[in-house]
Design a protein around this nucleic acid. Structure first.
Lengths: 154, 154
DNA sequence: TATTGTTATACTCTATAACTATA
DNA sequence: TATAGTTATAGAGTATAACAATA
């Protein structure tokens, strides 16, 4: 049952319509995220860093001695996911793990000198990436967009 | 070199600060997408469908006989990525491939009866998911948000 | 030659489960 | 008991490269 309302043959057109899908907010968030992800990857091809890796470097840089569980909590990753990111950055020599002095269960994460340098480079790339992203908005719109996105992820 | 400006030990607090990261639009898009993705996954656990799979079902339902290349172009996926999604849906019996009558290189994609039914169920789940997402916005804000996100992915 | 579909391969993100060490 | 880290494992999305069939 349930034959679709649209029955014309679209096999020759190269622009299938979104139809009702166009009204779905989550759908647009997904597409926008994909577009940003792809541009980010291009911008960071030379540095060889992913979005998540940059976020983690940045957060450790701003919060020295942060633990893995806190990092994951802030970036909405579980412990295992956090491990894979931190491991990769450690393998590349961008951070080091130390035992927390106050809680023996925790690690205390620190950037190495190479990590600090990679973060500085990454921040310059981010400027370029953000300029591309913000170019389609006024500064008022950027503010409104960030505020609305925060309502979703907070 | 490049010692971070913040040097206090954060190993005891459980809320590391975003700092400058808070001003990065791409960062908020990533977090918002993650939040939406996780709620979607919960909502669709029973149906066992992913965001991408639902988008593909929906688009084939609205555009019968669409080809894989057109599907991919609309959802910003390359040919290989489109294959993996379409394969999975075909294995579950939700769609069938036919040779396009007008262009022998193209496939023509159609939902099976099971696929139509799965799509109907998915659309009801989407309503619930969207209600959760939209609950934090006025209808004017929803419109503005969708319009701004479209500027990013178009 | 260009396009479409296909296969093989690989990497990242994500998550669950089970285990160890510490609180 | 609960928390933090670790390891093993697995699925999904994404992409590149090479190949076959068709235009």
């Amino acid at each position: 049952m349930a034959q679709s309302a649209l029955t014309e043959d679209n096999s020759d057109t190269d622009a299938p319509e979104f139809g009702e899908l166009d009204g779905i907010v989550g759908f647009h968030i997904r597409l926008a995220h994909g577009a940003v992800y792809r541009h980010f990857t291009e911008t960071f091809a030379a540095l060889g860093l992913t979005q998540k890796q940059v976020s983690v470097l940045w957060l450790i840089g701003s919060n020295p001695a942060v633990s893995q569980i806190e990092l994951g909590s802030r970036l909405r990753m579980d412990r295992a996911t956090t491990m894979t990111i931190v491991n990769r950055l450690q393998e590349r020599g961008y951070l080091r793990r130390e035992k927390s002095s106050s809680d023996g269960r925790k690690q205390s994460l620190h950037l190495t000198d190479d990590g600090e340098e990679a973060l500085e480079q990454a921040k310059r790339c981010i400027e370029e990436h953000e300029a591309w992203l913000k170019s389609r908005f006024t500064s008022d719109e950027v503010e409104k967009l960030v505020e609305m996105l925060s309502r979703i992820h907070e």
